[in-house]
């Protein structure tokens, strides 16, 4: 069976969609030489008209993509660093996202914003280590955070085919994942998956933290039976899938690498407690409020959700109630 890396899964998704659909094209910084090692080989295969290196003009090229989408193209933009999404928040939220409604349904804006290496890449410090997926879920832009190579492929394909703007976060902590992949297939947006069945507590883990949650679940296997739920898409969220899980386990812990206040973990917990009676108070492990990642590696780690914190949260939740 071929081993597929997360990065190559993204490359395959781009290549397959560009082959399938002439209207798909790529733009971004240093993508022709594939500096981020995602667009590797695509210039050669598809030519310079479909793989565009841009000047450093993120706000302009993000709205350029919106315009191209209004005119029938399906642009995919690669961003070099996650924090660039702050720079183009206006272009995505106030334009791309709003055009269909504002124009009374006259248009669609099928743009994909791909961020390979979101979150901390250890050592890139304050302005390059953010994980702002919660912001996009908050404003209601379709937001996916694939954890595995198969999902990286399948969700990127679905993002490109989607008629709305979609932000694809490929967490730095997941980029080195490799898996045996037999068949690559689109993964539907808005559908989560149970990564590990369990009976005592549901752990919702986002992106690369799915791998941490699985490791913790394995470590705790003798004491507590942990179900790991990977939502895959944060907006729209697979509430039915999650509620089904929590209805069985009666306990909930969320681990999420974004800021605590108004973060996706808070939304997940609120929605669950509105709908399902829990046996114990739910818990969340997140970045702190207002997190800025300090440079020094030990500080960088201390600000991100860790396995120890997750273990403690699971144990507390299972002890309570």
């Amino acid at each position: 069976m071929p081993r597929l890396s997360y990065r190559r899964a993204l490359t395959r998704a781009l290549a397959d969609e560009m082959t399938r659909d002439e209207s798909v094209f790529l733009l971004g910084e240093d993508i022709r030489v594939a500096a981020a090692n995602v667009t590797t080989g695509l210039l050669k295969k598809f030519g310079p008209d479909r793989v565009l290196d841009t000047p450093l003009s993120e706000q302009a090229f993000t709205s350029f993509a919106t315009g191209a989408a209004l005119a029938g193209a399906r642009p995919v933009i690669e961003f070099q660093i996650p924090s660039l999404l702050f720079l183009v928040f206006e272009q995505i939220v106030n334009h791309a996202h709003k055009f269909p409604l504002m124009t009374g349904g006259q248009c669609a804006v099928p743009v994909t914003y791909l961020v390979p290496g979101s979150g901390s890449r250890t050592g890139w410090a304050g302005q390059h280590s953010d994980h702002p997926y919660g912001l996009f879920a908050h404003v209601g832009v379709t937001t996916v955070v694939p954890a595995t190579p198969a999902d990286a492929y399948g969700l990127l394909v679905s993002a490109i085919r989607c008629d709305d703007p979609v932000v694809v976060f490929a967490p730095a902590g997941a980029l080195d994942a490799r898996a045996d992949v037999t068949d690559l297939a689109p993964v539907p947006l808005g559908r989560g998956v149970v990564r590990r069945p369990g009976a005592d507590v549901t752990v919702v883990a986002v992106g690369h933290l799915v791998h941490d949650a699985l490791a913790v679940a394995e470590e705790l296997a003798g004491q507590v039976s942990v179900e790991v739920f990977d939502p895959r898409t944060l907006y729209p969220f697979d509430w039915d899938g999650l509620l089904d899980s929590v209805s069985r386990t009666g306990r909930l812990v969320v681990v999420d690498d974004s800021n605590r206040s108004c973060g996706i973990a808070g939304e997940i917990i609120a929605t669950v407690v509105e709908r399902v009676p829990l046996a114990a108070p739910p818990r969340r492990v997140t970045r702190p409020d207002g997190a800025v990642l300090p440079f020094a590696p030990a500080l960088d780690r201390a600000v991100q959700p860790g396995r120890d914190q997750l273990t403690a949260a699971i144990q507390l939740t299972c002890k309570d109630g």
């Binding site: 050592g123 890139w124 410090a125 304050g126 302005q127 390059h128 300090p294 440079f295 020094a296 500080l299």
Partner: peptide, 8 residues
């Protein structure tokens, strides 16, 4: 104080 690194 080790908070910024090269780029800050």
């Amino acid at each position: 104080r080790g908070r910024g690194g090269s780029m800050h």
